[in-house]
Amino acid sequence: MLKIRNIDAGYGKIQILHRTSLHIREGEIVSLIGANGAGKTTLLNVISGLHPLKGGSVMFQNREIQAMPPDRIVGMGLIQVPETDKIFPPLTVLENLEMGAYLRRLDRRALQSEIEKIHALFPILRDRGDRAAGTLSGGERQMLALGRALMGKPRLLMLDEPSLGLAPVIVAEMFGIIQSLNAMGTTILLVEQNAREALQISNRAYVMETGRIVLTGAGVELMSNEEVKRAFLGNDYKEKWER
């Protein structure tokens, strides 16, 4: 579904991504894990058309998309929920959702029924409908951002740190929602620092380090990989010492 080949990208003279390649098949949950500054967000922005690439190609549903403007990429169903800057603070919650469906040109009734679906998934957004999105809490913002992305009918949803800054209860809920979205047919690319939960729900995963993919494999497989344990699952590693 998504095939990325040998991407080079960076800021000015500083190269961030070095010949990065990965692919995602339809229906999968794939996670991308790596430390801060590994280039995960840059990679997502290259895919979304926000960041120019210096070399390589991005194919989505067998079409090259690396030269397309961001709105056309969204129109094809490749939608990102970014880590920062994810909502429109001065617009109301309802308007934020509506903007997620901007390209679909729905009539009033169709738009209403799409919004209903989002409300069913995140009831809190119904109560907050007329409030400015900037007044929402961190967890509510994350739900709004996800809701807005779903309004665009994504085929492949790219989530950048969806659990960041959320209370543990809500994190579990968020991962549950991601799994059920996947069960309903949305392919998912998950970028996470919360490696354990991410790997648990993923079919496959990639590990990124300073702009390079250094490891790849099935989610559960990577969980038992010594290298991954050392780098990302700190607490587990302690078990080894105690043994």
Binding site: D71, G75, M99, G152
Partner: peptide
């Protein structure tokens, strides 16, 4: 509304498909 969205955040607007 889309124009207000662009004013609020150009990057976010791009990711919403505006």
């Amino acid at each position: 509304k889309a124009m207000r969205a662009v004013a609020a955040s150009r990057r976010s607007a791009m990711l919403a498909g505006i």
